[in-house]
């Protein structure tokens, strides 16, 4: 597979719930600029919202980085959610519908994985959580 070339990156620091809104609005604006369909714009914004909220709730602070990807003639948005919080002990369970260690529906992570085209989560002990998710534009 051809490695997608990143075009540009923007970063939103996530510390409080107002930053969640800033991050998802930034994502929606980028998706709109790239010509994503309206449902896909909403999916990108929703994914960012879920990932950014997890940072506020579980890790106190972190960041959302958005990068435009180019692969052949299609473009994509890569979301990187990064924090240095306590990490996730059991990734498999965290990706199950309905599992939550907080007071939530437990759909944020599994739901985000469903609505994105690519999804990777890492939480090495002591290094917080890094999630990389990509949405490609439909041709």
């Amino acid at each position: 597979m051809q490695v997608p070339a990143p075009l540009d990156a923007m970063v939103q620091a996530i510390r409080r719930d107002a930053d969640v809104i800033s991050a998802r609005q930034m994502g929606r604006a980028l998706a709109e600029d790239l010509g994503f369909s309206r449902p896909d714009q909403a999916l990108v914004a929703t994914a960012i919202s879920e990932l950014a909220r997890n940072i506020v709730v579980y890790a106190d602070h972190g960041e959302i980085e958005l990068t435009t990807l180019q692969q052949g003639d299609r473009q994509g948005i890569r979301i990187i959610a990064r924090d240095h919080g306590p990490g996730i002990a059991d990734l498999e369970r965290a990706l199950c519908d309905g599992f939550s260690t907080g007071n939530s529906l437990g759909l944020g992570l599994p739901g985000t994985r469903r609505i994105m085209d690519e999804f990777d989560i890492r939480s090495p002990p002591g290094e917080g959580v890094t999630i990389i998710a990509v949405k490609w534009q439909l041709r």
């Binding site: 449902p39 909403a42 879920e50 759909l107």
Partner: peptide, 13 residues
């Protein structure tokens, strides 16, 4: 909204 409805369903909400 339609787009919101689609996102909710796909997310599992």
């Amino acid at each position: 909204q339609p787009d919101v409805a689609i996102s909710m369903v796909l997310l599992g909400l």
